[in-house]
Design a protein around this nucleic acid. Sequence first.
RNA 1: GGGGAAGUGUCGGAAUUGGCAGACGAGCAUGACUUAGGAUCAUGUGCCGCAAGGCGUGGGGGUUCAAAUCCCCCCUUCCCCA
Length: 934
Amino acid sequence: MAAKYIPNEIEKKWQEKWAETGLYRVSEDSPRPKYYALTMFPYTSGDLHIGHWYVMAPSDVQARFKRMQGYNVLHPMGFDAFGLNAENAAIRQGIHPYTWTMQNIENMRRQLKSMGAVYDWDREVITCQPDYYKWTQWFFVKLYEHDLAYRAKAPVNWCPSCQTVLANEQVIDGLCERCDTAVIHRDLEQWFFRITKYADELKEHVGIDWPERIKIMQRNWIGRSTGTEISFALDHPVVDEKEIRVFTTRPDTTSGVTFMVLAPEHPLVPKLTVPERKAEVEAYVERSRRQTEIERLSTEKEKDGVFLGSYVINRLNGEKVPIWIADYVLLRYGTGAVMAVPAHDERDFAFALKYGLPVIHVIDRTDGIAKSFAMAGTMRPGLKQSLEAANITFIETSNGGLYVTLHGDDQIDRYIEMVKSSLLPGSWVEIVGSRWLFIFASEEGVTVLPFDSIDADRLILAKCKELEPNVRNRRTVMEMLWGLEFYHDMLFHTEYGTMIHSGPLTGTPGDQTINTVTEWMEQQGFGHATVSYRLRDWLISRQRYWGAPIPMVYCDKCGIVPVPEEDLPVLLPEDAEFRPTGESPLAYNEQFVNTTCPQCSGPAKRETDTMDTFMCSSWYFLRYCSPHYEKAAFDPEKMKYWMPVDLYTGGAEHAVMHLLYVRFFIKALRDMGIVHFDEPCNRLYNQGHIIAEQRKMSKSRGNVITPDEYVIDLGVDTVRVYFMFLGPWEQGGEWDDSGISGVRRWLNRVWNLVIEEYTPRVESDGVRTELQRTTHQTIRKVTGDIERLRFNTMIAALMEFTNYLTKIRESSSVSQADWNEAIEKLMLLLAPSTPHVAEELWEQTGHYYSIHSQDWPQWDEELAKEEEVTLPIQISGKMRDKITIPAVLASTITKAELPQFARERSTRIAEYLEGKKIKDIIYVPGKILNFVVE
RNA sequence: GGGGAAGUGUCGGAAUUGGCAGACGAGCAUGACUUAGGAUCAUGUGCCGCAAGGCGUGGGGGUUCAAAUCCCCCCUUCCCCA
């Protein structure tokens, strides 16, 4: 009896041997083509959990596969080691962030080693080590020198609990990403990277194979919108500015502007506030400052605002437009001011109704529908009959009022004529929707007033109030119309249509409005086409200790001076004091703060903020190319050899942060001449997430599951395979270990299959060919699946192959040589997935060390080809029988021969066809045969 | 509200992209074996039906000789953005 499979023994044995012999040491002087397989490095938060393994184990399989395929594979590992977690631990437990981080790394490294990956540990990169962050700082200076880093005062997201600034991306639903505290706004002097300079290039993903959904997310995040910047005239005694500019994507609606809204923190607000409104305005500004962005933009919340008491002039029609502030306008977006067109924007419409601001329609409906309500007692008898005669639809109320719906200009015109003659003096009727008219009748005659401007609104409302006491409390015509539910669907729309009520531009058709209006405004000199982005510059300052210090010095004489390369790194002092004050602990460290100016050698102060950790992770893949290089961030030759990355795997949660920053970084370096390519990685793949108890695993939630016990219990190869076998990699899913023993059982079977002696008995040529065919089909399937990162079906194929080989062993019907060959292929196919088992079996079957240095098996398309095919036969689309025929025949048989052929081969089919007339025969060679019968 | 992904047995999932639905594994059932194990092996296992057969891929409609797959409407879940 052969030795049993005892995972822990062979795992230890081979991991030691691989390390001793330097099996996975990577160098650049190889005749093989290079392959850079990068996995997002982990953040040093503590233990690795199975979520990390789910990311790393399949990547390792892919890298091993590429290695066997003959590539010189770089598949490195490192640690993203700066960041808030370490510092928070320091505050809570009094342990220095460096100590805490390095302890974590030690444990994580141990766990990673137990996974048996191909990582070349000589290339490990740790971002919090001075020899790494020296170069992080160096890149900062480079960006500064190329005008891609600048300092500005800006309202920033501030987490009161973490006491630090957060990037927009770190604010989730108005809460801090890390501690779920509500984020507030604060003005601070900050460092920014000019990522917006690259917005257009980042929006395109030229020449790279990235998942469509990531590209879409990045495009949405960048949010490029083309529109028009329009100037509104400002004539105010105490304000120097003579205009307020707004950005809009709907310049065609400009003549419908009935008010303007500024962000509460807009610098003009104090000056534009009239004294009697000062208290109200200040209170509102104060309140919105305390609110989170998400509260301000929430659609559930009713929009509110305050009138400043000042006006701008709409240069299109000369109308005086009141200026309001409202918190749904953000200073960061566009110009911090928007023109409000309540007739064609839902939010503005609600705002106008709430505050009694006029609503003027300036874009025609495209469906040509108009509505009118003829109130009971306002019409002479006979209108009903006229409407019926004209085929106009209406609903009569119990007291004789008519709800009229008009379709098209003809009906509207005819209706106007009918109304003109039917309307009783002292009454009015309005037509809304595809026409905006008020018809008034008095003893003197009939007056038709177009509802087309703010003045018209005033005039019409006054006349209505005279006639009807019920509407005397209405502030606008629209408020009056809104009182009638029948009209609701007519009162605002956001479609593009022909312009109306727009002076010289009236009549411009809907498909030309944007261009025509913008050109016209350009000629008139108060508007121009422009592009606006949602993407903001990347704020990188963090008021924290545990990050790379920003290498800048402030000198009274020379101003802002970067630290020269020979003085880098600016080291973090070891004796920092950790207090949650909101300022970097570095600010209290006098030895750190006080320095001399690199230019004039006079006394100067250091920048005390540190960098966002996304800066550290923006170039770590470059460092892997030459991790010990001292003269620069990387050895240019080695970088040229390895970069760009061939396959980058990691979670989709980095879609708009890390993955956008990395691309920006590379583009910036390219423009500086430091790198030679446009994109950091050619192929990106996002695996899904393993969740536990419906949530992502995290220490704070207490739902962390570590791989360690599974490894001790079942062996690491089983764990690796189980992660792959769970389901499609990109999908992730809830952790459930109920199937893991199945994988272990399978590996047991594999083990026994290979180890136990095989004795041929009756050799059969037929079985031999079949064995060969199955082997080659398996090689083809496994190769294709790893290439496409479909690990679950790859494992299933290997299981099927083992099941098949078990049957062959039972029949003992192939020669020893044929058996050995099949087993050898099986071991090679297993090598990337179960490196330890494969290596041990390789040795036990008398092969030389190491299986991982062997060539990946090739398949022969001819040998893999089926000799016979199973042909399903349908009668009128229903599956009735299957017949097995030679593959050659399947492709040569003619349609005419088929009915007879099928009858001969299948009595069932013959019965079904008995007495039936065949209307049609569908035959897809080797796939399906379908007789369509009467 | 907008954008994206998904919905298949008891469960995880498969289906070469329009051609045998349910591969592979788990679970369950029955049996065999035994140095009684976290075994191992064999057989069965979508639903209804004694059967012939019928029904079945979230629901409803459509295209097609043929739909899990394509089109339209609706429902549910997850992710991203407002």
